[in-house]
Design a protein around this nucleic acid. Structure first.
Lengths: 177, 177
DNA sequence: AACATTATGTTATATTGTAACATTTATAAC
DNA sequence: GTTATAAATGTTACAATATAACATAATGTT
């Protein structure tokens, strides 16, 4: 006999901050930004953004779809991918290339060149502007005569808290990806 | 009436170097490395490696499969993915996360932390050790208390030669990805 | 030769993402 | 307000990417 608990419930929740504040702020920011740009944060787009902000984990498109279906019975893959496309265009979310997944973007100053720290244990993703990294990348690129359109800098490993757990012997075997 | 030419034939070939040398060297290196480690560079694995070295472009798994099928009629997706897994484990190729594709690795000294410059026009991928970038990343990560397993640093844009073509007005419209 | 290990064959299916066209909803022009 | 236009969504179908599970074959070890 097994107990059928969604995997997400089994993961450690390390965002021990007022996450409600994160969500509220993200939505408010998105609303204002869309107003300023004359872009339309429709109910579907808004819902996808909210779902992405329910945690600091990257979420897969079909997981979003499963969450939306009960609310919007007509939702299909295209529904979700279109909303994601819109949110990416507006810089409100990021695609995590190495996970085929998406996260809300909290770059306060709309600086969209950043480094993602992806924890293989708790699955949380931290965005860091990492200005010195960006400068070093810019230099390297200039040397190569390359002209940048887009950067994806994704680091996998263990976040500080999960690394702590590992050294204290509480780790599972699944953190060595 | 259309002429049915494989897309790869329509792309500019900018690797105007002795590419045969690249291939030969890569295979020789792989052979020696596998001997040293007691790993088996079987015909399938070797063929996949050779195909990845036919250009400096990232190649998709199913394109590899199409190329292998005529030679190994029993080849299936798993055939290719297993070979790719092996080659990645051995550090002989890279997965390009942002393309879901693969390239031969030429890090001479088996330094496998590197930056990929991916040209959106000619599709060529340049690996660069980018030591200063890696140092900056290491610092940033240390500040975050993060423990690295794996890095994916992928820059999309135009390589020097394609950028040149763009400014001289020979560009297509498809290079702004 | 017998056994264990590794690699490959094979079937089926899961996951991720797009194309194409129809319909609806919102915005702009009159 | 009605009409024209554009934007967004609905819908169907499918393409592209990837893995699981188990069977068979090849290789290495004793």
């Amino acid at each position: 006999m097994t107990i059928d608990v969604p995997i997400i419930e089994q993961l450690p929740e390390l965002s021990n901050h007022d996450h409600g504040g994160c969500i509220a702020k993200a939505i408010r920011t998105a609303e204002q930004l869309c107003i300023d740009r004359g872009a339309r944060l429709t109910p579907i787009r808004r819902k996808v953004l909210e779902l992405l902000w329910e945690s600091h984990r990257a979420v897969k498109a079909y997981d979003l779809l499963d969450r939306i279906k009960p609310l919007e019975t007509s939702a299909k893959p295209a529904t979700v991918y279109r909303a994601l496309d819109f949110l990416i265009e507006q810089g409100l979310i990021h695609r995590v290339e190495s996970l085929n997944a998406f996260i809300g973007c909290n770059c306060s100053d709309h600086q969209h060149e950043l480094l993602l720290l992806i924890c293989n244990r708790c699955q949380e993703v931290e965005e860091r502007p990492a200005l010195e990294v960006m400068e070093a990348v810019a230099k390297e690129i200039e040397q190569a005569g390359f002209h940048v359109h887009r950067k994806a800098i994704e680091i996998h490993g263990l976040c500080a808290q999960c690394a702590q757990l590992s050294t204290t012997g509480l780790s599972s075997q699944s953190d060595l990806i």
